[in-house]
Every structure is written in C-alpha cells, then in structure tokens.
Amino acid sequence: TFELKGKVGKVVKIAEDHYLVEVEGDKWIAYSDEKLSLGDRVMVVDVDGLKLKAKRIP
C-alpha cells in the first residue's frame, strides 16, 4: 500500500466519518483534513495501515 502515496484518485462515496476513494481501480477508505465532495480528485498523501489520507487537488 505504500506505493499508493502520491497517486491520484476520486471520491466515490461519503460516509459519516470517512470517504471511499477509488485509486487505480481499487476502492480504499480514506480520511482528509479538509471537507471533500463526491467526485473530487484527490492525491494520496499518506497511508495508515489500510486507510489513506487524501488531499483535494484541482
């Protein structure tokens, strides 16, 4: 999973306390310091076990 750092994905679902992000065809649980919206493009900035930390990108 460490190779996911720096990869770009898309928010495909918003849950109460996390997001579901699709990166290279796989879906991952993600969290972010900022509020994300459905369809936002994100970059993986860190990997915490099986969770990704994501940041919105333009």
Rank of each mutant, 00 (worst) to 15 (best):
T1I: 15
T1K: 15
F2I: 15
E3D: 06
L4E: 08
L4D: 08
K5P: 14
K5C: 15
K5S: 10
G6C: 05
G6M: 02
K7W: 03
K7P: 02
K7M: 05
V8F: 11
V8C: 12
V8S: 10
V8N: 07
G9N: 00
G9V: 05
G9D: 00
K10G: 08
K10N: 12
K10Y: 11
V11P: 00
V11A: 02
V11L: 04
V11Q: 00
V12L: 13
V12K: 05
V12Q: 05
V12Y: 08
V12D: 04
I14T: 12
A15D: 12
A15Y: 14
E16L: 12
E16W: 12
E16A: 13
D17W: 10
D17S: 11
H18W: 10
H18A: 09
H18G: 13
Y19N: 02
V21C: 06
V21Q: 00
E22Y: 06
E22G: 03
E22H: 07
E22P: 00
E22A: 08
V23Y: 02
V23I: 15
V23Q: 02
V23L: 13
E24W: 05
E24H: 06
G25P: 02
G25Q: 08
D26I: 14
D26T: 14
D26H: 14
D26L: 14
K27T: 09
K27F: 09
W28G: 01
W28Q: 02
W28D: 01
A30F: 01
A30R: 00
A30G: 09
A30T: 12
Y31L: 14
Y31Q: 11
Y31P: 01
S32N: 04
S32D: 02
D33E: 10
D33Y: 07
E34Q: 08
K35R: 14
K35A: 13
K35L: 13
K35D: 12
L36H: 02
L36P: 01
S37L: 14
S37A: 12
S37F: 14
S37P: 02
G39K: 06
D40S: 05
D40M: 06
D40P: 00
R41T: 14
V42S: 01
V42C: 08
M43L: 10
M43S: 05
M43P: 00
M43V: 14
V44F: 14
V44P: 01
V44H: 01
D46T: 03
D46E: 11
D46P: 02
V47M: 08
V47K: 05
D48V: 14
G49N: 07
L50P: 09
L50M: 14
K51L: 09
L52R: 01
L52K: 01
L52H: 01
L52E: 00
L52M: 04
K53L: 06
K53Q: 06
A54T: 15
A54R: 00
A54K: 01
A54D: 01
A54M: 14
K55V: 11
K55A: 14
K55G: 08
R56Y: 08
I57R: 03
I57K: 04
P58A: 11
P58G: 11
P58Q: 11
P58V: 10
